[in-house]
Amino acid sequence: MADKIRIATASLAGCFGCHMSLLDIDERLIDLVAHIEFDRTPLTDIKQIGRCDVGLIEGGVCNAENVEVLKAFRRHCNLLVAVGACAINGGIPAMRNQYSLTECLEEAYLHGSGIDQPQIPSDPELPLLLDQVHPIHDVVWIDYFLPGCPPSADTIFTFLDELLSGKPIRFAYRQIHYD
């Protein structure tokens, strides 16, 4: 099955909603799987990305690990796709850009309500947060954008289906929305 399209996916600063939407393709997945195989993705639990045709990125970039993952995807994928509002413009996580990182961390770990042992976490195991949340196109070149929070299963399917068929990708009016 050398002709199968190899796809990797990742969720950065996202909520996995876009991945849920991918799964929401339902029975059409069966048709798709005949033509695609998954590389690194939360669905396969493969940790290291290999050479891929397509990378689907959900979520924006909020920490150092997101940057590393995103760069690894860019290096390994021929086509990198921003999937969903957070990847496209930072989405809900980027609402923290209204505040400084210090303000955010102090509110969350020091001064917020119901805090037991006030302390801002610091451990080499933890990725450091960026001072702002960024859309992924701020960090690497992105070839395609699928808007939506999440993009509907139909939108994702149409995208993959038309990509596989080599057709120019066209969406029906209702398939494109930002919410």
């Binding site: 980027a94 850009n97 702002q132 701020d138 395609y144 808007p147 009016y173 929305h177």
Partner: peptide, 19 residues
């Protein structure tokens, strides 16, 4: 703003965001 962007086929803002 959304509606006009849908009409014009805008998939993403793509530029650097000002926040």
């Amino acid at each position: 703003l959304q509606a006009v962007a849908y009409h014009c086929g805008m998939l993403a803002p793509e530029f650097v965001h000002f926040y």
